[in-house]
């Protein structure tokens, strides 16, 4: 059982980790994995990111999940939080896009424009 004090400590620690108030120390890749995301094929994308990070022994990058972000037609959705940079949202992502995102964005520092939203 935690005390109120410990809950506040968890809050501060996790805010740091997630980079809520100040840039985080790690890059986060977050895949939308609610029923809607899973139905449109987000699970293989999540697995592919996990595998790529592990196989390439990439340090300071975590792969996580989130619920529904609300925009059904763009599923599967992936958000990339690079510390100190604006969030990048990738849309309609398949597992085949993962290696390019890892290479150019996560390692190369340049978002892959063709997987972001293009609007008219």
């Amino acid at each position: 059982m935690k005390t109120i004090e410990e809950i506040y400590q968890i809050r501060e620690k996790t805010r740091k980790k997630l980079g809520v108030d100040a840039p985080a120390s790690e890059t986060r890749i977050v895949v939308g994995l609610a029923t809607c995301g899973v139905a449109s094929g987000a699970k293989p994308v999540y697995d592919a990111f996990k595998k790529a990070i592990k196989e390439n022994k990439i340090k300071k990058v975590t792969v996580g999940q989130a619920g529904c972000i609300g925009m059904c037609k763009f599923e599967p959705l992936v958000q990339v939080f690079v510390p100190g940079q604006p969030v990048v949202t990738y849309v309609n992502i398949g597992a085949d896009a993962v290696s390019q995102i890892i290479e150019e964005h996560i390692l190369g520092g340049k978002p892959v424009a063709k997987y972001t939203i293009t609007q008219e």
């Binding site: 763009f74 959705l77 969030v87 849309v91 978002p111 424009a113 939203i117 293009t118 609007q119």
Partner: peptide, 8 residues
């Protein structure tokens, strides 16, 4: 104009 946006 057609533009590319990086965040939803």
């Amino acid at each position: 104009n057609v533009s590319s946006v990086t965040s939803l």
